[in-house]
Structures are given as C-alpha cells and as structure tokens.
Simulated assay, not measured.
Amino acid sequence: MIKSEIKKPNTFLYFAYGSNLWSFRIHINNPSAEFISIARLDNYRLDFWRYSKFWGGPTATLVATANSHVWGVIWRLNSENMADLDEQEGVHNKIYYETYLKVFTPYMGAFTCRVYVQKINPLPRGDNDPIPVEQWPSWTYKEVIIIGALEHEFPEYYIQLLEKIKHNEEKGCFKMFCLLRRFSRDKPCECRVPGRIPRKPLKLNLRLKRMKRKKMHP
C-alpha cells in the first residue's frame, strides 16, 4: 500500500496504542477497521490511569514527555463508525477526549490521526521514580496490548518494554474474552451446565499491594 492510497472519502485514520492494538479487540465494536501500518508517536509516553471495572485496572493513556515515544497501530475506519469508537472510548462519559496528532510510519511517512487521551492524566515522573500500584494495569489488559504488539510485529525493544510493565494480577474480563476469541472461530457449545459455576470475586486490594511492595523494596 502506498501513501496516496491511504486516505479515502468518508473514512478517518485512528491511532491505537492500548487494547485496540489487537485486531480482534477493535473489530468487536468497529468491524470496518482496516489495518494501515504501525506508527510511532514522539514526545509522549505510555501510562495507565483511572480504574476500569471492565478491565480490572487502569487503562492506557498518553502523557506528554520529552524524548519518549509510543508505538501503535493506524486503523482506517468508516466515518459512520466514529460515534461507535467515541462510545467505546467513553468520550460522552468524559473519560477520554479526542485529539489529532502526527505519527510516523516506518515506510510511508507521517500521518495525522485521531487519538484518544484520558481527560485526567497522572503527573510527570522521572525515569527512575517508582510507579504507584494504582498505575499498574491488570494482567489481562497488559496481555491484550502485548498480543496486539506481537500481531503487528512492533520493534522487539518496545515489546520487551511492554513485557516489563508491572501488573496488578487482576484478570478482569479475561474469561469473557477467551470465550469470544474461541467463538469467533468455532461454533459455541450448546451443552447445558447444571447449577451456577462458583467464581472468586475479583477485587483490587491496594493496601495488600502496597504492603507487598514495601516488603520487596524496603
């Protein structure tokens, strides 16, 4: 695909850097999404903020940071699906706001894309500052991001950075996503399971996390 073929009438470009890196995830709510290229956003860092009950931890956001960058994916969507994307990102609930930023592709130059950033972001921090447990994503959310990065063959060093991100051990909606992923390939099982399946409640115990952290880093 050459650069002149990227922009089409009644479409827009969207830069994803969180869970929507994974093509399976974005197509759940946005079936018209078409992969264009991986891309790099300069002078921003990837961070996690604002707890999501759905994911079991904070979700991804961009924080302006000099000499940092974030890798992501450019998707092309039909303009009629913009409202669906806004709804998924919680724009109407004032969780994220939309903006337009220039990102750089490896082979096709720069593109200005629609990007979503959280309304309230964490404060700047130094490279060696400890990351508070409130900013640790869930295990599931982190895995979804890594799956997307592997799927689209991000640079190896960036995948290693994603793998080093600490998580809060919560599973969030992982079971539901496993079922969706399976049913997207296979016919669902029609067996009847008697009774209810007991499930341990998923809770984020911040006090326990802090105590464990103090023991690890006295």
Rank of each mutant, 00 (worst) to 15 (best):
I2F: 09
K3Q: 10
I6D: 10
F15E: 07
A16K: 05
Y17V: 03
W22R: 06
R25V: 07
I26K: 01
I26M: 02
R40A: 05
D42V: 12
D47L: 02
D47I: 04
S52G: 11
G56K: 11
A60S: 15
V63I: 09
A64F: 12
A64C: 12
A64S: 13
T65F: 03
N67R: 12
S68R: 15
V70K: 14
V70Q: 13
W71P: 07
W71E: 09
V73I: 15
W75Y: 14
N78I: 07
E80M: 09
E87G: 08
E87P: 03
Q88L: 09
E89D: 10
E89A: 08
G90Q: 00
G90E: 02
Y96C: 04
Y96N: 04
K102P: 08
F104N: 11
Y107R: 11
M108G: 03
G109H: 08
Y116L: 14
P124C: 04
R125I: 05
D127A: 06
N128I: 00
P132K: 05
Q135E: 13
Q135F: 06
W136N: 04
S138F: 03
S138R: 06
W139A: 07
T140G: 11
K142P: 00
E143Y: 01
I146P: 12
I147W: 05
G148K: 03
L150R: 15
H152Y: 09
Y158K: 01
E163C: 11
K166W: 07
H167E: 10
N168T: 05
E170K: 10
G172F: 01
F174N: 03
M176Y: 04
L180Q: 15
S184C: 06
C189L: 12
V193Y: 14
V193K: 10
V193T: 14
G195V: 07
R196P: 01
R196S: 09
I197S: 04
I197E: 03
I197A: 04
P201C: 12
P201G: 07
L202H: 02
K203R: 14
N205Y: 06
L206G: 03
R207M: 12
